[in-house]
Amino acid sequence: MCLGVPGRVIAVDGMIATVDFWGVKKQVRLDVIDEPVTPGDYVLNHVGYAIRRIPPEDIGETLALYDELLAGKSGADLMADDVRGELAASVTASASPRPAND
């Protein structure tokens, strides 16, 4: 119901942040965010307003939660071998929860 798009803060000028969304820069208002925002932070944008500072550690936390769901309580594993292999590769490739700065 609400199109929310995450992006990385490039610059902050008062109540306005310049935010990079996959390479497109857009000015976003900071009036309603509940934490101070500095360049390098990630924010969730909705209709031109940042509504949340996304803690980088929570990205890792979410992915870990999904992997927990995958394992299931019983430890049953329905994943086909190829899927398990691909998954292992992708987990290794994205091991650091904090995205490297480019």
Partner: peptide
């Protein structure tokens, strides 16, 4: 193009 995709995502 990545920038076209990005604008598309932003504007829905």
């Amino acid at each position: 193009r990545p920038d076209v995709r990005a604008v598309g995502e932003l504007l829905g």
